[in-house]
Amino acid sequence: MARNNLSTIKLKIRILKNKILWCFCEIKSKLSNKKIIDSELIIPDSDLKNILILAPHADDEWIGCSQAISKAEKSTVYYFNFLGKNYHQENETIRQNEIKNVSNKTGFKLIVSTNRENHSDLKELILENNFTVIFIPFPLDWHPEHIKANDIALEILKKIDLSVPLYFYHISVPTPESMRNCYYLPLSKKEIQTKIKIFDDCYISQKNTPIRRFAIQNVIWAQSQNFYAAEVFAKYSLLEWELFLNFVKEQKNEIEKSIYLIDYPFKIREYSDKIFLKFNT
């Protein structure tokens, strides 16, 4: 009982802390000098005609790609059905029901992997559909199942003669600020409020993962831009992706330390940039 009470108190403190940080970021954004972002850095509508999002976990698709889903003419989410540390049947059912609720609310087609070790269905999905872009979790991340999803997708795409843009969305660790090949999907204040509400309404099991922690990064990305917030995506070729993924694996021990910074939005951005700069040296 005491342990449950302590966990509840800690969660409330995390939520309060994120709300305070949110207010701080809003104020800083209003005071910063704005510039009009190069329109070429906004993901073009032509890429958003028929999109595929690869989601290791239920909620990754909404955390990283809510605006891609909202703005795409047609969107498909391939859910790997990874469950972190809880592979009990009850949790699997809960998580599938939650992502189905998001699918119903937002209109994307949901494909749930039926075999966590054999993803031939993903290969068939890509071959049978004329996707205009594929969204993949950004490899610089402490979560091993985000890396596993990268490995599976890379292996499949290397065997397919396919010319399609590859955008990488961040989940736990922000995209490094020093990256030059970054693209944006802006959010208005109303759109980010909708993003938070849908997450809160649908992902009930993830109440220990305050969505504002992720949304804060969206606001920070837009502090010097002429919009309220933004989801940010790295863009890599197949070769660039493979090289970076290999680097990430070499830096595994360092990257795993970022888990201790998840509630410190500015520190984790600095840490992400620090690791990425090693890749460029």
Rank of each mutant, 00 (worst) to 15 (best):
S120N: 14
P144F: 09
I196V: 15
S163Y: 08
S172M: 01
D60M: 00
D273L: 00
Y167D: 04
T175L: 14
K35E: 15
I171M: 01
E256T: 06
N208M: 05
D263S: 10
N150C: 09
I111C: 08
R14Q: 14
P210C: 06
S163K: 14
E191T: 13
I275P: 01
S75I: 09
N50I: 12
F80V: 01
N97G: 11
L83E: 03
F199K: 03
L277M: 03
R213M: 08
L54E: 00
N5M: 04
C23W: 05
S7I: 12
F244P: 02
N181Y: 12
P137N: 02
P44H: 12
N181G: 11
A153W: 05
I99P: 05
D151S: 11
E98N: 02
M1N: 14
D121Y: 10
Y79N: 10
A215D: 05
E155H: 13
K249E: 15
S188M: 13
D38P: 08
E191M: 14
N33M: 05
P44Q: 12
Y79D: 14
N150Y: 02
F24M: 10
E128C: 11
Y169M: 08
N280D: 07
I53M: 03
M1S: 15
I42E: 04
H170C: 10
F80D: 00
E250Y: 03
R95A: 04
E250W: 00
I15E: 14
Q96P: 01
S205P: 03
F276H: 03
E254R: 08
P56F: 00
K267Q: 08
F131T: 03
W62Y: 09
F276P: 01
K252P: 00
C202I: 07
S172H: 07
P265K: 01
I37P: 09
L277H: 04
E191V: 13
N253I: 04
A58S: 06
R14S: 13
T8A: 08
I20K: 04
F24D: 07
I63D: 03
N218P: 02
N246P: 04
L54T: 07
V173D: 10
T132P: 05
F244D: 03
G64P: 00
G64V: 02
A2V: 15
Q96N: 11
H143A: 01
D60F: 01
K189R: 15
W22A: 06
K100A: 15
E145R: 01
P265N: 05
N280T: 12
N129F: 12
I156W: 10
V164Q: 05
